[in-house]
Write a protein that binds this DNA or RNA. Structure first.
Length: 852
RNA sequence: GCCCCUGUGGCGGAAUUGGUAGACGCGACAGAUUCAAAAUCUGUUGUCCAUAGGGCGUGCCUGUUCGAGUCAGGCCAGGGGCACCA
């Protein structure tokens, strides 16, 4: 019996593809393009199963589209800047660059063992000056167009990583990497003007019809559009005004106080000579920002002694409080409080004994005082003079129009999205190419000085920014006046690196950041594949970058990713010893009694839940070992076969073994049946026996169905269909020249179909079938539509909606005839018995339902 | 609190988009092969009553329909996103 040697065969074809430069691509305007991209990995050291799943999916699409005649761009690179390299430097005394490049070398080797159809000639690493130097050029271009600016602002400071975090990187008040409680600090920061693009970024989502709805929704929520009004309240007996933002101008008559944030300019002014205010501000800064702290925090405030005049009610004064629940970075940092119709205002008013005025009637017309809590719902406006009798929405419009007439307010759209702070006080990132000069201020570097390279001789033993500690690096000359000046020592957030790499892939060695001709041809990315965890940050930043690069003329598109697919995670059972220690799957074995035991100790093992693979729970499998044991093809097949690609899948050895079995079975089938099949390229017979025709039908139906499934990225159903086809092949009794021909057709089709998923085996079979070409260069087989349509159909017969029989009838048979056949069926007759037939519904080629 | 998604055998999941529920895989059971095992092959495998055959069955309840996993309304459970956002 022939056995397939995956290790040898896979190495053979990988080297053939490499030698022939099979997957190298160039811009070719005469051909339709297809850009397939998987989110590039961080070079942590090893690929994990999640990468295997991600890159296999991308590879299937890439190989499929190649076969369908597209000029396919399928590149790979490394998201290579970031803190882990600095941690490794500190802990292992190895330079970040050395650590990173060694990891890249290893991961490249591992990826190559998967047999991916990647154009390695386009490989890039974001930590290479050839990449980050171009990014510095982009930064200068952005600076020129005022897409980036510098300002002193309150930032999220991670005291463990000693760096600034973007709002997006603070989760529950903790740093996303370190988990440390984030503090507020005031620092000079470089900011991208992403908030200027709020409306465009929101609007653009509508046209991204090949994005998952939930990702679009997440971005929509993140941008957080709300419409309301800005209103200027006059501060009593002063020429000053307090500007507030509200979404409920309809409740202005219910106002009973004003509240400003602790960081509001007014508060800061008052704090100078009001110790109570100063003390309260300090208290607010001490307060944690974690979810728990916020939930427990009482609504607190301090009366400033100032009041504002009510805009509509002559003589009514509203006390101004500094309140801990008002945020400086949303709206204007100031609100008017309407306790009757807002939860927080209600709590605040209750605590400080402020009026709770009702201005919206309840659903049943209630107009009584609100004592239990605020009323948030819709209703008729009351106690509000000119607004009385209107519903909430109409009253909003009327109130705004009055404010506009009085010239003290206007309708305003507000967004939750804030500008993107990109400064990081780290070494292993892209240096921000500006210089601080005492005379000239902040001066951009001259483009000819780029790249501003990182120094190599750095130390990591002191906390803080190694670039700042470097004895000489930051000393430079001012690009403007030539005097001594200090280089900016902050580096860019690594999300900047990943916001344009897909454009750089089109011409990775270009002198310019991107070559317009190439990006115009290749972009947008036709199919982007990656994890849901990037649904907001990376994708939103990239969408902003595309717009910014359009402003500088670097690119011509708005949306970088036309199609997005978010794949699920890979999970695994967890194992613990009786003493509670986590155990690696490879150290657990099933003993003769069928119980799981620890290999070394023989101790009983407790099987825990199926969870996301994590190092801490040790429920990980190493792709290198998997590929060694089962072969790359089987690993690829299994990650595609078991679950729909957007859902989590469980890695099991049994499943991988199943994939391995299929690979052997298919190989053996071809080996054993090759000489029964017709010669390559032989002419098709004119007549086919029933058996041969039936196989041909199966071949073309499978082809049609698998093609459709891959097109929709339904890899699991594509594989299920291939299994069925395999069964049909196994059952086929080959005889005659027509049989031999049908068998060859079936085997060639099968080989082509498994090609995108198990490329090495498929190349091997293709060669065995007598081809001298490479399968990866061969076109996808063509469906003969006539053979996908049967001339008889099986029709279900229901009596009162319950299935009683199935009948075989000619396709498109006359309704009356179908009804007659259905009524003649014994089981149907029995089910009807003596009951009178009230109605017979015949759906052509589908079903008959007899109503009694 | 607000917004969204999911719920189908022992398990992962199919289901032509309102038309035969459980394709395909895993697991399990039985048999063949073997001195034996592995590997391989062939069956069986939603559940209950059972002899043909029939009852029940897609988280729960109601409804629309000749017909509902699929549509509508209301629950329950699990998961995700946002969150003192005015």
């Amino acid at each position: 019996m022939s056995r397939y040697n995956a290790r040898e065969v896979e190495a053979k074809w990988q080297s053939t593809w490499e030698t022939n430069q099979t997957f190298e691509t160039r811009t070719d305007l005469s051909r339709p393009k297809y850009y397939v991209l998987e989110m590039f990995p961080y070079p942590s050291g090893n690929i994990h199963i999640g990468h295997v799943r991600n890159y296999t999916m991308g590879d299937v699409v890439a190989r499929f589209k190649r076969a369908r005649g597209f000029n396919v761009l399928h590149p790979m690179g490394w998201d290579a800047f970031g803190l882990p390299a600095e941690n490794a430097a500190r802990d292992k005394k190895i330079h970040p660059a050395e650590w990173t490049y060694a990891n890249i070398a290893n991961m490249r080797k591992e990826l190559k063992s998967m047999g991916l159809s990647l154009d390695w000639s386009k490989e890039l690493a974001t930590c290479h000056p050839g990449y980050y130097g171009k990014q510095q050029q982009l930064f200068l271009d952005f600076l020129d167009k005022e897409l980036v600016y510098r300002k002193e602002s309150w930032v999220n400071w991670d005291p463990v990583d000693m760096t600034v975090l973007a709002n997006e990187q603070v989760i529950d008040g903790k740093g996303w990497r370190s988990g440390a409680l984030v503090e507020k600090r005031k620092l000079n920061q470089w900011m991208f003007r992403i908030s200027d693009y709020s409306e465009e970024l929101l609007d653009g989502l509508k046209d991204l019809d090949r994005w998952p709805d939930r990702v679009r929704l997440m971005q929509e929520n993140w941008i957080g559009k709300s419409s309301g009004a800005r209103v200027n309240f006059k501060i009593t007996d002063t020429p000053d005004h307090l500007e507030i933002y509200t979404t409920r101008p309809d409740t202005l008559y219910g106002a009973s106080f004003m509240a400003v944030a602790a960081d509001h300019p007014l508060t800061q002014k008052l704090a100078i000579d009001n110790p109570k205010v100063a003390e309260f501000v300090a208290e607010c800064h001490r307060m944690g920002t974690s979810e728990e702290a916020i939930e427990k925090a009482e609504k607190k405030g301090v009366d400033t002694g100032l009041t504002t005049d009510h805009p509509f009610i002559e003589g009514k004064k509203l006390p101004i409080y500094v309140a801990n629940f008002v945020l400086m970075d949303y709206g204007t940092g100031a609100i008017f409080g309407c306790p009757g119709h807002d939860q927080r205002d209600f709590e605040f008013a209750t605590k400080y004994g402020l009026q709770i005025n009702r201005v919206v009637a309840g659903p049943d017309g209630e107009t009584g005082p609100l004592t239990e809590g605020p009323y948030i719902g819709p209703g008729e406006i009351i106690n509000s003079e000119f607004l009385n009798g209107l519903d909430v929405e109409a009253a909003k419009k009327a109130a705004i129009s009055k404010l506009e007439t009085l010239e003290i307010g206007s309708e305003t759209i507000n967004y939750r999205l804030r500008d993107w702070g990109l400064s990081r006080q780290r070494y292993w990132g892209c240096p921000i190419p500006v210089v601080h000069c005492e005379a000239c201020g902040t001066v951009p570097e001259k483009p000819e000085n780029l790249p501003i390279e990182l120094p190599e001789d750095v130390t990591f033993d002191k906390p803080g920014n190694p670039l700042d500690h470097h004895p000489t690096w930051k000393n430079t000359k001012c690009p403007s006046c030539g005097k001594d000046a200090i280089r900016e020592t902050d580096t860019m957030d690594t999300f900047v690196d990943s916001s344009w790499y897909f454009a750089r892939f089109c011409s990775p060695r270009s002198d310019a950041a991107v070559t317009r001709e190439d990006v115009d041809y290749w972009l947008p990315v036709d199919q982007y594949i990656g994890g849901i965890e990037h649904a907001i940050l990376h994708l939103l930043y990239s969408r902003f970058f595309s717009r910014a690069m359009k402003v500088t003329g670097a690119v011509g598109y708005d949306e970088p990713f036309a199609g997005l697919f978010t794949q699920g995670m890979v999970t695994h059972e967890t194992y613990r010893s009786e003493s509670g220690e986590w155990l690696l799957p490879q150290d657990v074995i099933t003993n003769d009694a069928g119980d799981p035991v620890h290999i070394e100790t023989g101790e009983k093992v407790v099987i825990g839940g199926v969870e996301k693979m994590s190092k801490s729970k040790k429920n990980v499998v190493d792709p290198a070992e998997i590929i060694d044991k089962f072969g790359a093809d089987a690993a690829r097949w299994f990650v595609l076969s078991d679950s729909p690609p957007d859902r989590d899948m469980e890695w099991t050895d049994a499943g991988a073994t199943g994939a391995w079995r299929f690979k052997q079975r298919l190989y053996r089938f071809v080996v054993e049946n090759l000489d029964k099949s017709a010669a390559i390229n032989s002419e098709a017979p004119t007549e086919f026996s029933d058996a041969a025709l039936s196989l041909r039908r199966e071949t073309h139906k499978t082809l049609a169905s698998v093609t459709d499934s891959i097109e929709k990225l339904h890899f699991n159903t594509a594989i299920a269909r291939i299994y069925e086809f395999m069964k049909a092949l196994g059952d086929f009794k080959c005889s005659g020249t027509d049989g031999a021909w049908a068998l060859r057709e079936a085997m060639e089709t099968m080989t082509a179909l498994v090609g995108p998923m198990m490329p090495h085996l498929a190349e091997e079979l293709w060669e065995m079938l007598g081809h001298t070409t490479i399968l990866a260069d061969s076109p996808w087989p063509t469906v003969i539509t006539d053979l996908t349509v049967d001339n008889t159909v099986t029709i279900a017969v229901q009596v009162k909606g319950k299935l009683r029989a199935t009948i075989e009838v000619a396709k498109d048979e006359d309704k009356a005839k179908v009804e007659e056949l259905a009524l003649a069926d014994e089981s149907v007759k029995r089910a009807i018995a003596d009951a009178p037939i009230r109605k017979v519904i015949v759906v052509p080629n589908r079903i008959v339902n007899i109503v009694i």
